[in-house]
Design a binder for these strands. Sequence first.
DNA 1: TAGTGGTCTAGACCACGGC
DNA 2: CCGTGGTCTAGACCACTAG
Lengths: 213, 213
Amino acid sequence: MQGWQDIQAEALRRIQRREWTPGSLIPGEAELAREFGCARATVNRALRALAEDGWLERRRRAGTRVALSPQRRAQMSVPVLRQEIEAHGYVYTHQLLHAHTMDDTLFLHTLHLSDGVPYALENREINLSEVPAAASEDWTTLSANEWLVQNAPFDHGTMIYEAIAAAPFEAANLLCAEGSPLLVLRRETFSGTGLITCVTLAYAPAHAVRLQI
Amino acid sequence: MQGWQDIQAEALRRIQRREWTPGSLIPGEAELAREFGCARATVNRALRALAEDGWLERRRRAGTRVALSPQRRAQMSVPVLRQEIEAHGYVYTHQLLHAHTMDDTLFLHTLHLSDGVPYALENREINLSEVPAAASEDWTTLSANEWLVQNAPFDHGTMIYEAIAAAPFEAANLLCAEGSPLLVLRRETFSGTGLITCVTLAYAPAHAVRLQI
DNA sequence: TAGTGGTCTAGACCACGGC
DNA sequence: CCGTGGTCTAGACCACTAG
């Protein structure tokens, strides 16, 4: 036993082997520090990491308990289509289908392709009062998907996945039958209080979103 | 300025106000500790938290830089259908449609309902050699979805979302037309090297998965 | 009110990796 | 090499809260 990661690993082992059972109180930091022959701060570091991962629940005075249902969480980033496609070894291209501006909103329709095959259809609105630089951008070389990731950092947002039936416009662009089931991602991102962009991404049929837990 | 959270907040402010620009080197821990009038460990705690959230990239010797594209990540838990449904104020029920055992695998088909309306159709396999207790469980009162969360903690796993067309079996149980687009979640969870369970969850039409970024 | 975790400090040594 | 972040220590005080 040397670093806090070793103590974390040992504690996790005890949880998984049920030496420390769900809901039960585990020894205090001081006692564990004595057992492992280290400072209390080191034990604190290890247990705090386990608590952040959902294995433990810690409360002052009440002590540390093994979580009743250790919920592992999957993490998902905002997808950058070029990276998704190139990670599979394919060539990424995109076509700007349509662009127009109304009031302070820029509307863009983009088709993303993988080795020339339709991959996803993007329908995006950009709030020009939040991102004025977007007004003078040439979307034929760099897609809005990539440009915004680099140029419009956001504080928070929402993502929604759902399944829809392909409408004629989607069917024509994604080269599938009308009514085909499509996975769709809708996303809104905000900076402070202002909406930056709002996008609907319809993936080609059979697309799957994979997450590691 | 008092605790590490204040230092974290101040650093985040400088990033968001572009006083520290993406890609640039920020002052070292020792210098910031001097500026804030605290110990280096306190600065370290604050900057480490920002790095874990993706705002900073830290490397020994190279120093700390503002991330080029501060990628916010969405977090998603393994859904517990009862909680999902009750969180919306509806009554959760479920029906065991089918169960049988072959070799060391238990096969279960379950329909989950929200206020009596079909919500999701679950097709599950449980590895009895990893979870022997599952063999003697009565699935009519507690669904496998809930039971496993409590009784079979896992180390890691994969989740896959995709869109499918409703087959006759799904259409009949989810009360929708054949061919309706359905959002489907496939999940495998493991403990150590062993597969615990593998589940396909077909949600009723128009279901959406919402994530906060 | 007493006991737990949360945090801070000052100092120290180490590991990594640009130079 | 040597400066940077990563970590550990021993001790201290504080915040919260169960009893």
